[in-house]
Design a protein around this nucleic acid. Structure first.
Lengths: 253, 253
DNA sequence: CACAGCCGTTGCAACATATGCAACGGCATC
DNA sequence: GATGCCGTTGCATATGTTGCAACGGCTGTG
Protein backbone atom coordinates (compact mmCIF):
# COMPACT_ATOMS: atom_id res chain seq x y z
CA UNK A 1 0.00 0.00 0.00
CA UNK A 2 1.25 3.41 -0.82
CA UNK A 3 0.91 6.00 1.92
CA UNK A 4 1.76 8.79 -0.51
CA UNK A 5 -1.01 7.81 -2.91
CA UNK A 6 -3.47 7.44 -0.04
CA UNK A 7 -2.67 10.94 1.10
CA UNK A 8 -3.14 12.32 -2.38
CA UNK A 9 -6.54 10.69 -2.75
CA UNK A 10 -7.61 11.86 0.67
CA UNK A 11 -6.70 15.36 -0.43
CA UNK A 12 -8.99 15.03 -3.45
CA UNK A 13 -11.84 13.76 -1.30
CA UNK A 14 -11.32 16.61 1.16
CA UNK A 15 -11.20 19.45 -1.35
CA UNK A 16 -14.09 18.14 -3.47
CA UNK A 17 -17.08 19.32 -1.43
CA UNK A 18 -15.59 22.78 -0.88
CA UNK A 19 -12.30 24.51 -1.67
CA UNK A 20 -9.69 24.36 1.12
CA UNK A 21 -6.52 26.23 2.09
CA UNK A 22 -3.10 24.60 2.24
CA UNK A 23 -3.08 24.72 6.04
CA UNK A 24 -6.47 23.01 6.28
CA UNK A 25 -5.35 20.26 3.90
CA UNK A 26 -2.07 19.68 5.75
CA UNK A 27 -3.96 19.44 9.02
CA UNK A 28 -6.57 17.13 7.55
CA UNK A 29 -4.07 14.56 6.26
CA UNK A 30 -1.65 15.07 9.15
CA UNK A 31 1.50 16.19 7.35
CA UNK A 32 3.67 19.27 7.14
CA UNK A 33 2.45 22.05 4.87
CA UNK A 34 5.42 21.57 2.56
CA UNK A 35 4.44 17.94 2.09
CA UNK A 36 0.82 18.80 1.37
CA UNK A 37 1.97 21.46 -1.07
CA UNK A 38 4.05 19.01 -3.08
CA UNK A 39 1.21 16.51 -3.24
CA UNK A 40 -1.14 19.27 -4.42
CA UNK A 41 1.33 20.47 -7.00
CA UNK A 42 1.40 17.01 -8.48
CA UNK A 43 -2.38 16.64 -8.43
CA UNK A 44 -2.70 20.05 -10.09
CA UNK A 45 -0.15 19.27 -12.77
CA UNK A 46 -2.39 16.42 -13.88
CA UNK A 47 -5.73 18.17 -13.55
CA UNK A 48 -7.02 16.23 -10.56
CA UNK A 49 -6.90 19.40 -8.47
CA UNK A 50 -7.05 23.12 -9.22
CA UNK A 51 -5.37 26.04 -7.49
CA UNK A 52 -7.93 28.83 -7.20
CA UNK A 53 -6.96 32.51 -7.56
CA UNK A 54 -7.73 33.05 -3.87
CA UNK A 55 -5.08 30.50 -2.93
CA UNK A 56 -7.39 27.67 -2.02
CA UNK A 57 -7.41 24.29 -3.73
CA UNK A 58 -10.30 22.42 -5.25
CA UNK A 59 -11.02 19.37 -7.34
CA UNK A 60 -9.98 19.52 -11.00
CA UNK A 61 -11.91 18.92 -14.21
CA UNK A 62 -9.77 16.04 -15.43
CA UNK A 63 -11.84 13.86 -13.13
CA UNK A 64 -15.03 14.43 -15.13
CA UNK A 65 -14.30 12.24 -18.14
CA UNK A 66 -12.86 9.59 -15.83
CA UNK A 67 -16.14 9.55 -13.96
CA UNK A 68 -17.92 9.06 -17.26
CA UNK A 69 -15.76 6.01 -17.94
CA UNK A 70 -16.74 4.65 -14.56
CA UNK A 71 -20.40 5.20 -15.35
CA UNK A 72 -20.05 3.61 -18.78
CA UNK A 73 -18.70 0.43 -17.27
CA UNK A 74 -21.62 -0.33 -15.03
CA UNK A 75 -22.44 -3.84 -16.10
CA UNK A 76 -26.15 -3.84 -15.41
CA UNK A 77 -26.61 -1.20 -18.11
CA UNK A 78 -25.58 -3.47 -20.94
CA UNK A 79 -27.73 -6.28 -19.66
CA UNK A 80 -30.81 -4.26 -18.80
CA UNK A 81 -30.80 -1.61 -21.50
CA UNK A 82 -32.76 -3.57 -24.14
CA UNK A 83 -35.51 -4.22 -21.60
CA UNK A 84 -35.71 -0.54 -20.70
CA UNK A 85 -35.77 0.49 -24.34
CA UNK A 86 -38.56 -1.89 -25.21
CA UNK A 87 -40.62 -0.80 -22.21
CA UNK A 88 -40.10 2.90 -22.92
CA UNK A 89 -41.04 2.48 -26.58
CA UNK A 90 -44.08 0.36 -25.78
CA UNK A 91 -45.37 2.50 -22.92
CA UNK A 92 -44.24 5.92 -24.03
CA UNK A 93 -42.88 6.76 -20.57
CA UNK A 94 -39.37 7.41 -19.27
CA UNK A 95 -37.73 4.37 -17.64
CA UNK A 96 -34.85 4.53 -15.14
CA UNK A 97 -32.49 2.01 -13.64
CA UNK A 98 -30.69 2.84 -10.40
CA UNK A 99 -28.24 0.84 -8.35
CA UNK A 100 -27.08 0.98 -4.75
CA UNK A 101 -23.42 1.94 -4.58
CA UNK A 102 -21.90 2.53 -1.17
CA UNK A 103 -24.50 4.76 0.46
CA UNK A 104 -26.32 6.06 -2.58
CA UNK A 105 -28.77 4.73 -5.11
CA UNK A 106 -27.19 5.96 -8.32
CA UNK A 107 -29.05 6.35 -11.62
CA UNK A 108 -27.17 4.10 -14.00
CA UNK A 109 -29.45 4.14 -17.03
CA UNK A 110 -32.34 6.13 -18.38
CA UNK A 111 -34.42 5.70 -21.51
CA UNK A 112 -36.74 8.50 -22.48
CA UNK A 113 -40.23 7.66 -23.68
CA UNK A 114 -41.99 9.36 -26.54
CA UNK A 115 -44.11 12.42 -25.70
CA UNK A 116 -41.10 13.14 -23.54
CA UNK A 117 -40.52 14.66 -20.13
CA UNK A 118 -37.69 16.56 -18.47
CA UNK A 119 -36.67 15.60 -15.02
CA UNK A 120 -33.83 16.08 -12.61
CA UNK A 121 -32.58 12.50 -12.76
CA UNK A 122 -29.11 12.15 -14.23
CA UNK A 123 -26.99 9.10 -14.79
CA UNK A 124 -24.16 9.03 -12.28
CA UNK A 125 -26.06 11.10 -9.75
CA UNK A 126 -27.84 9.74 -6.73
CA UNK A 127 -31.62 9.41 -6.52
CA UNK A 128 -33.04 11.37 -3.63
CA UNK A 129 -33.55 8.85 -0.86
CA UNK A 130 -36.91 9.90 0.54
CA UNK A 131 -38.71 10.82 -2.68
CA UNK A 132 -37.40 8.80 -5.65
CA UNK A 133 -39.18 5.53 -6.37
CA UNK A 134 -35.99 3.67 -7.18
CA UNK A 135 -34.42 4.73 -3.89
CA UNK A 136 -37.46 3.67 -1.89
CA UNK A 137 -37.62 0.27 -3.54
CA UNK A 138 -33.94 -0.43 -2.89
CA UNK A 139 -34.11 0.88 0.70
CA UNK A 140 -37.24 -1.17 1.40
CA UNK A 141 -35.38 -4.39 0.59
CA UNK A 142 -32.17 -3.69 2.51
CA UNK A 143 -31.35 -5.65 5.68
CA UNK A 144 -33.00 -3.80 8.56
CA UNK A 145 -29.84 -2.53 10.25
CA UNK A 146 -28.49 -1.19 6.96
CA UNK A 147 -31.86 0.37 6.18
CA UNK A 148 -32.06 2.10 9.58
CA UNK A 149 -28.61 3.59 9.10
CA UNK A 150 -29.62 4.81 5.68
CA UNK A 151 -32.87 6.35 6.99
CA UNK A 152 -30.87 8.25 9.61
CA UNK A 153 -28.77 9.78 6.89
CA UNK A 154 -31.78 11.10 4.95
CA UNK A 155 -32.53 14.80 5.11
CA UNK A 156 -36.32 14.61 4.56
CA UNK A 157 -36.44 17.99 2.88
CA UNK A 158 -39.97 18.95 1.82
CA UNK A 159 -40.40 19.74 -1.88
CA UNK A 160 -44.16 19.46 -2.39
CA UNK A 161 -47.22 18.90 -0.19
CA UNK A 162 -46.90 15.14 -0.72
CA UNK A 163 -43.22 14.86 0.29
CA UNK A 164 -42.68 12.43 3.18
CA UNK A 165 -40.83 14.42 5.85
CA UNK A 166 -40.52 12.17 8.90
CA UNK A 167 -38.58 8.92 9.46
CA UNK A 168 -41.69 7.28 10.92
CA UNK A 169 -43.84 8.00 7.91
CA UNK A 170 -40.99 6.92 5.68
CA UNK A 171 -40.68 3.57 7.47
CA UNK A 172 -44.41 2.98 6.99
CA UNK A 173 -43.98 3.85 3.31
CA UNK A 174 -41.19 1.27 3.01
CA UNK A 175 -43.37 -1.32 4.77
CA UNK A 176 -46.03 -0.64 2.15
CA UNK A 177 -43.43 -0.96 -0.64
CA UNK A 178 -42.44 -4.42 0.57
CA UNK A 179 -46.06 -5.49 1.04
CA UNK A 180 -47.32 -4.56 -2.37
CA UNK A 181 -44.10 -5.15 -4.25
CA UNK A 182 -43.48 -1.71 -5.72
CA UNK A 183 -42.66 1.88 -4.70
CA UNK A 184 -44.28 5.12 -5.80
CA UNK A 185 -43.26 8.74 -6.09
CA UNK A 186 -46.54 10.58 -5.77
CA UNK A 187 -45.35 14.00 -6.92
CA UNK A 188 -43.01 14.12 -3.91
CA UNK A 189 -40.05 15.76 -5.61
CA UNK A 190 -41.83 17.64 -8.38
CA UNK A 191 -45.57 17.76 -8.05
CA UNK A 192 -46.18 17.26 -11.77
CA UNK A 193 -44.16 14.06 -12.03
CA UNK A 194 -45.08 10.63 -10.66
CA UNK A 195 -43.53 7.21 -10.96
CA UNK A 196 -43.67 3.60 -9.92
CA UNK A 197 -40.53 1.59 -9.16
CA UNK A 198 -39.98 -2.17 -9.11
CA UNK A 199 -37.27 -4.20 -7.35
CA UNK A 200 -34.68 -6.01 -9.47
CA UNK A 201 -33.46 -9.16 -7.71
CA UNK A 202 -30.02 -10.68 -8.03
CA UNK A 203 -29.01 -14.35 -7.91
CA UNK A 204 -29.18 -14.41 -4.12
CA UNK A 205 -32.55 -12.69 -3.97
CA UNK A 206 -31.15 -9.35 -2.84
CA UNK A 207 -32.28 -6.01 -4.21
CA UNK A 208 -29.63 -3.41 -4.96
CA UNK A 209 -31.20 -2.24 -8.20
CA UNK A 210 -34.53 -0.59 -8.91
CA UNK A 211 -36.35 0.07 -12.15
CA UNK A 212 -38.84 2.90 -12.43
CA UNK A 213 -41.40 4.17 -14.90
CA UNK A 214 -41.94 7.90 -14.74
CA UNK A 215 -44.57 10.10 -16.33
CA UNK A 216 -46.02 13.55 -16.14
CA UNK A 217 -49.10 13.43 -13.92
CA UNK A 218 -51.00 15.19 -16.69
CA UNK A 219 -50.08 12.49 -19.18
CA UNK A 220 -50.34 9.36 -17.01
CA UNK A 221 -51.38 9.75 -13.37
CA UNK A 222 -50.39 7.10 -10.80
CA UNK A 223 -53.61 5.15 -11.25
CA UNK A 224 -52.76 4.65 -14.92
CA UNK A 225 -49.22 3.53 -14.10
CA UNK A 226 -50.62 1.10 -11.51
CA UNK A 227 -52.84 -0.43 -14.18
CA UNK A 228 -49.67 -1.32 -16.10
CA UNK A 229 -48.04 -2.92 -13.06
CA UNK A 230 -48.27 -6.52 -14.36
CA UNK A 231 -46.24 -5.50 -17.41
CA UNK A 232 -43.73 -3.52 -15.32
CA UNK A 233 -43.36 -6.45 -12.93
CA UNK A 234 -42.80 -8.77 -15.86
CA UNK A 235 -39.96 -6.57 -17.18
CA UNK A 236 -38.29 -6.14 -13.78
CA UNK A 237 -38.43 -9.90 -13.26
CA UNK A 238 -37.02 -10.54 -16.72
CA UNK A 239 -34.03 -8.34 -15.82
CA UNK A 240 -33.79 -10.16 -12.47
CA UNK A 241 -33.63 -13.51 -14.23
CA UNK A 242 -30.79 -12.18 -16.39
CA UNK A 243 -28.99 -11.58 -13.10
CA UNK A 244 -29.50 -15.15 -12.03
CA UNK A 245 -32.61 -14.71 -9.93
CA UNK A 246 -34.72 -17.82 -10.08
CA UNK A 247 -37.35 -17.48 -7.47
CA UNK A 248 -40.45 -15.88 -6.19
CA UNK A 249 -40.22 -12.23 -5.30
CA UNK A 250 -41.22 -13.05 -1.74
CA UNK A 251 -37.88 -14.75 -1.15
CA UNK A 252 -35.92 -12.79 1.38
CA UNK A 253 -32.37 -12.78 2.72
CA UNK B 1 6.44 17.04 -7.29
CA UNK B 2 5.55 13.54 -6.29
CA UNK B 3 6.54 10.83 -8.69
CA UNK B 4 4.47 8.29 -6.85
CA UNK B 5 1.30 10.36 -7.08
CA UNK B 6 1.95 11.06 -10.76
CA UNK B 7 2.21 7.36 -11.41
CA UNK B 8 -1.02 6.67 -9.56
CA UNK B 9 -2.88 9.28 -11.56
CA UNK B 10 -1.45 8.03 -14.81
CA UNK B 11 -2.74 4.59 -13.87
CA UNK B 12 -6.23 6.01 -13.43
CA UNK B 13 -6.08 7.78 -16.79
CA UNK B 14 -4.84 4.62 -18.45
CA UNK B 15 -7.42 2.22 -17.04
CA UNK B 16 -10.37 4.62 -17.51
CA UNK B 17 -11.14 4.14 -21.21
CA UNK B 18 -10.87 0.36 -20.96
CA UNK B 19 -9.89 -2.16 -18.30
CA UNK B 20 -6.21 -3.20 -18.28
CA UNK B 21 -4.09 -6.05 -16.89
CA UNK B 22 -1.37 -5.58 -14.32
CA UNK B 23 1.34 -6.19 -16.90
CA UNK B 24 -0.06 -3.58 -19.28
CA UNK B 25 -0.25 -1.03 -16.48
CA UNK B 26 3.30 -1.72 -15.28
CA UNK B 27 4.58 -1.36 -18.83
CA UNK B 28 2.57 1.82 -19.40
CA UNK B 29 3.96 3.65 -16.37
CA UNK B 30 7.41 2.07 -16.64
CA UNK B 31 7.73 0.31 -13.29
CA UNK B 32 8.00 -3.26 -11.99
CA UNK B 33 4.76 -5.21 -11.73
CA UNK B 34 5.05 -5.36 -7.95
CA UNK B 35 5.22 -1.57 -7.81
CA UNK B 36 2.21 -1.20 -10.09
CA UNK B 37 0.33 -3.71 -7.98
CA UNK B 38 0.92 -1.78 -4.78
CA UNK B 39 -0.17 1.47 -6.37
CA UNK B 40 -3.32 -0.23 -7.67
CA UNK B 41 -4.04 -1.77 -4.31
CA UNK B 42 -3.98 1.67 -2.78
CA UNK B 43 -6.20 3.17 -5.49
CA UNK B 44 -8.63 0.27 -5.05
CA UNK B 45 -8.73 0.59 -1.27
CA UNK B 46 -10.04 4.13 -1.77
CA UNK B 47 -12.43 3.43 -4.63
CA UNK B 48 -10.48 5.24 -7.33
CA UNK B 49 -9.88 1.94 -9.10
CA UNK B 50 -11.64 -1.43 -9.21
CA UNK B 51 -10.24 -4.94 -9.54
CA UNK B 52 -12.48 -6.81 -11.94
CA UNK B 53 -13.25 -10.52 -11.47
CA UNK B 54 -11.23 -11.30 -14.61
CA UNK B 55 -8.12 -9.83 -13.02
CA UNK B 56 -8.05 -6.58 -14.95
CA UNK B 57 -8.27 -3.17 -13.34
CA UNK B 58 -10.59 -0.32 -14.16
CA UNK B 59 -11.61 3.06 -12.85
CA UNK B 60 -13.64 3.09 -9.62
CA UNK B 61 -16.99 4.66 -8.75
CA UNK B 62 -15.67 6.92 -5.99
CA UNK B 63 -14.64 9.26 -8.76
CA UNK B 64 -18.23 9.95 -9.79
CA UNK B 65 -19.28 12.21 -6.91
CA UNK B 66 -15.92 13.97 -7.10
CA UNK B 67 -16.60 14.76 -10.72
CA UNK B 68 -19.96 16.20 -9.70
CA UNK B 69 -18.17 18.52 -7.27
CA UNK B 70 -15.92 19.63 -10.10
CA UNK B 71 -18.96 20.31 -12.28
CA UNK B 72 -20.72 22.18 -9.51
CA UNK B 73 -17.82 24.58 -9.17
CA UNK B 74 -17.77 25.83 -12.71
CA UNK B 75 -17.90 29.57 -12.17
CA UNK B 76 -19.75 30.56 -15.32
CA UNK B 77 -22.80 28.68 -14.06
CA UNK B 78 -23.36 30.97 -11.11
CA UNK B 79 -22.88 34.03 -13.23
CA UNK B 80 -24.92 32.93 -16.24
CA UNK B 81 -27.68 30.92 -14.61
CA UNK B 82 -30.10 33.81 -13.95
CA UNK B 83 -29.88 34.81 -17.62
CA UNK B 84 -30.60 31.27 -18.74
CA UNK B 85 -33.50 30.95 -16.34
CA UNK B 86 -35.11 34.17 -17.50
CA UNK B 87 -34.70 33.26 -21.15
CA UNK B 88 -36.09 29.75 -20.65
CA UNK B 89 -39.07 31.07 -18.71
CA UNK B 90 -39.75 33.83 -21.22
CA UNK B 91 -39.31 31.74 -24.35
CA UNK B 92 -40.49 28.36 -23.10
CA UNK B 93 -37.51 26.57 -24.67
CA UNK B 94 -34.58 24.69 -23.15
CA UNK B 95 -31.41 26.75 -22.83
CA UNK B 96 -27.87 25.32 -22.54
CA UNK B 97 -24.49 26.69 -21.65
CA UNK B 98 -21.38 24.80 -22.72
CA UNK B 99 -17.72 25.57 -22.21
CA UNK B 100 -14.52 24.46 -23.93
CA UNK B 101 -12.40 22.41 -21.54
CA UNK B 102 -9.29 20.81 -22.92
CA UNK B 103 -10.56 19.24 -26.13
CA UNK B 104 -14.27 19.08 -25.41
CA UNK B 105 -17.13 21.52 -25.26
CA UNK B 106 -18.77 20.45 -22.01
CA UNK B 107 -22.35 21.22 -21.09
CA UNK B 108 -22.06 23.18 -17.87
CA UNK B 109 -25.63 24.36 -17.36
CA UNK B 110 -29.07 23.60 -18.67
CA UNK B 111 -32.42 25.17 -17.92
CA UNK B 112 -35.51 23.41 -19.17
CA UNK B 113 -38.29 25.43 -20.69
CA UNK B 114 -41.94 24.87 -20.06
CA UNK B 115 -43.68 22.44 -22.39
CA UNK B 116 -40.57 20.40 -21.83
CA UNK B 117 -38.35 18.31 -24.04
CA UNK B 118 -35.95 15.46 -23.39
CA UNK B 119 -32.59 15.48 -25.02
CA UNK B 120 -29.28 13.76 -24.73
CA UNK B 121 -27.45 16.78 -23.39
CA UNK B 122 -26.15 16.28 -19.86
CA UNK B 123 -24.16 18.58 -17.68
CA UNK B 124 -20.62 17.34 -17.40
CA UNK B 125 -20.77 15.55 -20.74
CA UNK B 126 -19.34 16.84 -23.98
CA UNK B 127 -21.50 18.25 -26.75
CA UNK B 128 -21.06 16.38 -29.97
CA UNK B 129 -18.61 18.39 -32.05
CA UNK B 130 -20.13 18.20 -35.49
CA UNK B 131 -23.82 18.44 -34.60
CA UNK B 132 -24.37 20.44 -31.40
CA UNK B 133 -24.92 24.18 -31.82
CA UNK B 134 -22.81 25.08 -28.79
CA UNK B 135 -19.89 23.03 -30.11
CA UNK B 136 -20.08 24.62 -33.56
CA UNK B 137 -20.19 28.15 -32.18
CA UNK B 138 -17.15 27.56 -29.96
CA UNK B 139 -15.21 25.76 -32.72
CA UNK B 140 -16.03 28.51 -35.20
CA UNK B 141 -14.33 31.09 -33.00
CA UNK B 142 -11.20 29.14 -32.13
CA UNK B 143 -7.83 30.18 -33.56
CA UNK B 144 -7.50 28.45 -36.92
CA UNK B 145 -4.73 26.02 -36.01
CA UNK B 146 -6.60 24.91 -32.90
CA UNK B 147 -9.80 24.62 -34.90
CA UNK B 148 -8.17 22.47 -37.57
CA UNK B 149 -6.80 20.09 -34.96
CA UNK B 150 -10.24 19.86 -33.40
CA UNK B 151 -11.90 19.20 -36.76
CA UNK B 152 -9.47 16.36 -37.39
CA UNK B 153 -10.53 14.74 -34.15
CA UNK B 154 -14.22 14.78 -35.06
CA UNK B 155 -15.85 11.51 -36.06
CA UNK B 156 -18.57 12.92 -38.35
CA UNK B 157 -20.96 10.09 -37.62
CA UNK B 158 -24.26 10.45 -39.47
CA UNK B 159 -27.36 10.46 -37.27
CA UNK B 160 -30.00 11.96 -39.54
CA UNK B 161 -30.26 13.03 -43.19
CA UNK B 162 -29.15 16.55 -42.23
CA UNK B 163 -26.01 15.54 -40.29
CA UNK B 164 -22.86 17.14 -41.68
CA UNK B 165 -20.50 14.28 -42.42
CA UNK B 166 -17.42 15.74 -44.13
CA UNK B 167 -14.71 18.08 -42.82
CA UNK B 168 -15.12 20.33 -45.86
CA UNK B 169 -18.82 20.81 -45.36
CA UNK B 170 -18.18 21.34 -41.67
CA UNK B 171 -15.62 24.08 -42.34
CA UNK B 172 -18.13 25.84 -44.60
CA UNK B 173 -20.70 25.54 -41.84
CA UNK B 174 -18.28 27.17 -39.38
CA UNK B 175 -17.57 29.96 -41.89
CA UNK B 176 -21.29 30.59 -42.03
CA UNK B 177 -21.48 30.57 -38.21
CA UNK B 178 -18.84 33.29 -38.00
CA UNK B 179 -20.46 35.34 -40.78
CA UNK B 180 -23.95 35.42 -39.40
CA UNK B 181 -22.98 35.30 -35.72
CA UNK B 182 -24.78 32.16 -34.61
CA UNK B 183 -24.75 28.37 -35.10
CA UNK B 184 -27.63 26.03 -35.80
CA UNK B 185 -28.40 22.37 -35.24
CA UNK B 186 -30.89 21.57 -37.98
CA UNK B 187 -32.08 18.22 -36.67
CA UNK B 188 -28.55 16.88 -37.12
CA UNK B 189 -28.38 14.72 -34.00
CA UNK B 190 -32.07 13.97 -33.51
CA UNK B 191 -34.26 14.96 -36.42
CA UNK B 192 -37.06 16.25 -34.22
CA UNK B 193 -34.88 18.70 -32.28
CA UNK B 194 -33.35 21.93 -33.55
CA UNK B 195 -31.44 24.74 -31.89
CA UNK B 196 -29.58 27.97 -32.36
CA UNK B 197 -26.39 28.77 -30.46
CA UNK B 198 -24.72 32.10 -29.73
CA UNK B 199 -21.11 32.87 -28.83
CA UNK B 200 -20.32 34.15 -25.33
CA UNK B 201 -17.26 36.42 -25.36
CA UNK B 202 -14.80 36.86 -22.54
CA UNK B 203 -12.83 39.95 -21.55
CA UNK B 204 -10.30 39.42 -24.29
CA UNK B 205 -12.91 38.81 -26.97
CA UNK B 206 -12.35 35.07 -27.12
CA UNK B 207 -15.14 32.51 -27.28
CA UNK B 208 -14.84 29.38 -25.15
CA UNK B 209 -18.49 29.35 -24.11
CA UNK B 210 -21.65 28.92 -26.13
CA UNK B 211 -25.28 29.44 -25.25
CA UNK B 212 -28.01 27.58 -27.10
CA UNK B 213 -31.78 27.59 -27.31
CA UNK B 214 -33.27 24.25 -28.17
CA UNK B 215 -36.77 23.25 -29.15
CA UNK B 216 -38.73 20.43 -30.68
CA UNK B 217 -39.10 21.11 -34.37
CA UNK B 218 -42.84 20.49 -33.98
CA UNK B 219 -43.08 23.17 -31.33
CA UNK B 220 -40.69 25.80 -32.70
CA UNK B 221 -38.94 25.13 -36.03
CA UNK B 222 -35.66 26.88 -36.84
CA UNK B 223 -37.38 29.75 -38.62
CA UNK B 224 -39.20 30.62 -35.43
CA UNK B 225 -36.00 30.44 -33.37
CA UNK B 226 -34.27 32.69 -35.91
CA UNK B 227 -37.02 35.28 -35.46
CA UNK B 228 -36.05 35.47 -31.79
CA UNK B 229 -32.37 35.96 -32.60
CA UNK B 230 -32.21 39.62 -31.47
CA UNK B 231 -33.36 38.56 -27.99
CA UNK B 232 -30.97 35.60 -27.88
CA UNK B 233 -28.09 37.79 -29.01
CA UNK B 234 -28.98 40.29 -26.32
CA UNK B 235 -28.84 37.60 -23.60
CA UNK B 236 -25.57 36.11 -24.85
CA UNK B 237 -24.02 39.58 -24.92
CA UNK B 238 -25.31 40.33 -21.43
CA UNK B 239 -23.52 37.22 -20.17
CA UNK B 240 -20.44 38.27 -22.16
CA UNK B 241 -20.43 41.66 -20.47
CA UNK B 242 -20.57 39.91 -17.10
CA UNK B 243 -17.34 38.24 -18.19
CA UNK B 244 -15.72 41.56 -18.93
CA UNK B 245 -16.40 41.73 -22.64
CA UNK B 246 -16.82 45.30 -23.70
CA UNK B 247 -16.77 45.35 -27.43
CA UNK B 248 -18.40 44.59 -30.67
CA UNK B 249 -18.88 40.97 -31.49
CA UNK B 250 -16.79 41.43 -34.62
CA UNK B 251 -13.68 41.92 -32.50
CA UNK B 252 -11.31 39.06 -33.09
CA UNK B 253 -8.13 37.74 -31.52
C1' DC C 1 4.85 53.18 9.86
C1' DA C 2 6.58 49.25 12.42
C1' DC C 3 5.70 44.98 14.05
C1' DA C 4 3.57 40.48 14.73
C1' DG C 5 1.29 36.65 12.90
C1' DC C 6 0.10 33.68 9.37
C1' DC C 7 0.16 32.32 4.72
C1' DG C 8 2.31 29.79 0.79
C1' DT C 9 6.71 28.38 -0.73
C1' DT C 10 11.64 26.55 -1.37
C1' DG C 11 16.33 24.28 -0.52
C1' DC C 12 18.29 20.61 1.61
C1' DA C 13 19.64 16.71 4.62
C1' DA C 14 17.69 12.80 6.97
C1' DC C 15 15.09 8.90 6.89
C1' DA C 16 11.01 6.32 5.96
C1' DT C 17 8.85 4.50 2.29
C1' DA C 18 8.61 3.04 -2.38
C1' DT C 19 10.91 0.06 -5.17
C1' DG C 20 12.75 -3.99 -7.65
C1' DC C 21 14.31 -8.58 -7.15
C1' DA C 22 13.70 -13.29 -6.36
C1' DA C 23 10.61 -16.53 -5.54
C1' DC C 24 6.01 -18.39 -5.24
C1' DG C 25 1.48 -20.70 -6.65
C1' DG C 26 -1.98 -20.87 -10.19
C1' DC C 27 -3.53 -21.29 -14.81
C1' DA C 28 -3.38 -22.03 -19.75
C1' DT C 29 -1.12 -23.98 -23.57
C1' DC C 30 1.53 -27.31 -26.02
C1' DG D 1 4.39 -33.10 -17.58
C1' DA D 2 6.88 -29.06 -19.00
C1' DT D 3 6.82 -24.37 -20.08
C1' DG D 4 5.52 -19.65 -19.98
C1' DC D 5 3.09 -16.02 -18.11
C1' DC D 6 0.10 -14.16 -14.78
C1' DG D 7 -0.68 -11.91 -10.20
C1' DT D 8 1.35 -11.73 -5.79
C1' DT D 9 4.47 -11.46 -1.55
C1' DG D 10 8.66 -10.92 1.61
C1' DC D 11 12.54 -8.38 2.12
C1' DA D 12 16.74 -5.50 1.54
C1' DT D 13 17.99 -1.18 -0.09
C1' DA D 14 18.04 2.84 -2.96
C1' DT D 15 15.70 6.79 -3.52
C1' DG D 16 12.12 9.83 -3.27
C1' DT D 17 9.33 11.73 0.35
C1' DT D 18 9.44 14.28 4.25
C1' DG D 19 9.97 17.90 7.79
C1' DC D 20 12.76 21.67 9.21
C1' DA D 21 14.42 26.18 8.83
C1' DA D 22 14.09 30.03 6.46
C1' DC D 23 12.07 33.12 3.20
C1' DG D 24 8.95 36.87 1.11
C1' DG D 25 4.33 38.57 0.99
C1' DC D 26 0.10 39.97 2.95
C1' DT D 27 -2.98 41.46 6.56
C1' DG D 28 -4.26 43.33 10.90
C1' DT D 29 -3.06 45.97 14.95
C1' DG D 30 -1.13 49.52 17.80
Amino acid sequence: MSQTVSRAMEIIRFIGPSPRSLGEIAEHIGVHKSTALRLLQTLEQDGFARHLPDGRHTVGFAIIPLAQYAIDQIDIRTLAHPFLQRLAAQQGHTVHLAQLMDDDVIYVDKVDGSGTVAMGSRIGLPAEGHTAGVAKVVLAHLPESVREEAIERLGFQRHTPTTIVTPGAFRRELDLVRQRGWAEDDGEKEDYINCVALPVFDASGRVTIGMSVTALRAVAPLAELREQMPEYRRVAQAISRELGWNGDEHERR
